[in-house]
């Protein structure tokens, strides 16, 4: 027993090391911008760069739109599937898993091929390109958003709630916006934060569609010529990721033990 516990602590030690050392190294590196002393100069420079705020704001906007569209698309669908079209459940679940099969780089390749010419020349305009990127993000977020909402729906027995609402004279709009959405609050919010975490630093799709206007490509550009600033950006986005995951765990009160969105 004692020996096996020692073994356990050994692995935890290795894991902690793997986790902490790169963060420490990055943090230490980000403080070395001023020669000879440790300082937050790199952070100051990042925060003073208007391009930082611009790209950050732009990505935040993209993320918010992605969340809104995802929720409006998925909640009614998942609800309707449970209520009236259970025979489509398998098909919808299959579709929501497709983003695992089609990597972002392939998806953006296909999106560009389809929407860069007639009959749907979205990439010709600023608005069109941005909309296309949001659509791509909705696809990327689909598996996580759907799973979160479907689990939420399973927990509240929508069928009975709907029956109760109908027996009291509610129409579909009332049911959806006064009953379903409020009861799914936690599921929607935790799916949304995960989506935010995915979209904020997303690079692959953004770099092909909008370039350095978005936060991911902006960070990449900084990385090419400003060493210390790039380290501080890494720390900033790590804190951001931690904040989103922390919010999810706070919301679900630790019930959702692990959140995964996968690699990029």
């Amino acid at each position: 027993m004692r020996k096996s516990r020692l073994w356990s602590w050994f692995w935890i030690f290795i894991g902690t090391l793997y986790f902490v050392v790169p963060l420490l190294a990055t943090f230490e590196f980000s403080l070395r911008a001023r020669k000879g002393t440790l300082s937050f100069l790199a952070y100051e420079r990042v925060f003073k760069d208007p391009a930082f705020w611009k790209s950050f704001g732009f990505s935040l906007e993209l993320a918010v739109f992605t969340v809104i569209i995802s929720v409006l698309l998925i909640v009614p669908t998942a609800y309707w599937i449970r209520l009236r079209l259970p025979q489509l459940r398998g098909a919808v679940e299959f579709i929501t898993m497709l983003p695992f099969v089609i990597p972002a780089i392939v998806l953006v390749f296909g999106l560009i091929r389809v929407f860069s010419g007639p009959p749907l020349p979205l990439t010709d305009t600023y608005f069109g390109t941005t909309a296309l990127l949001v659509a791509g993000y909705v696809v990327l977020a689909l598996p996580y958003m759907y799973r979160s909402i479907d689990i939420g729906l399973a927990a509240i027995d929508v069928r009975t709630l709907t029956e109760a609402a109908q027996s009291l004279g509610a129409g579909w709009g009332t049911i959806l916006f006064k009953i379903v959405f409020p009861n799914l609050r936690v599921a929607i919010l935790s799916g949304s934060f995960l989506t935010l975490a995915i979209v904020m630093g997303e690079f692959t799709m953004a770099s092909f569609l909008v370039g350095i206007k978005a936060f991911g490509p902006y960070m990449s550009l900084i990385g090419q010529n400003k060493t210390y600033e790039s380290s501080s950006l890494a720390i900033i986005s790590f804190i951001l990721t931690w904040a989103f995951i922390g919010l999810i765990q706070l919301l679900t009160r630790g019930r959702a033990e692990g959140q995964m969105a996968g690699a990029r």
């Binding site: 935890i12 894991g15 986790f19 050392v21 790169p22 963060l23 190294a25 990055t26 230490e28 590196f29 980000s30 995960l194 975490a197 995915i198 630093g201 997303e202 690079f203 991911g216 960070m219 990449s220 990385g223 790039s230 380290s231 950006l233 890494a234 986005s237 790590f238 990721t241 931690w242 989103f244 995951i245 922390g246 999810i248 765990q249 033990e257 692990g258 959140q259 995964m260 969105a261 996968g262 690699a263 990029r264």
Partner: peptide
């Protein structure tokens, strides 16, 4: 602690991760 950290780290990928490993 491990599960929280795993949630964060499995989502911490892409450009910033590359920066972190260059610094390491």
């Amino acid at each position: 602690a491990l599960l929280t950290f795993s949630s964060v780290a499995s989502n911490f990928a892409g450009v910033p991760l590359a920066f972190a490993f260059i610094a390491t």
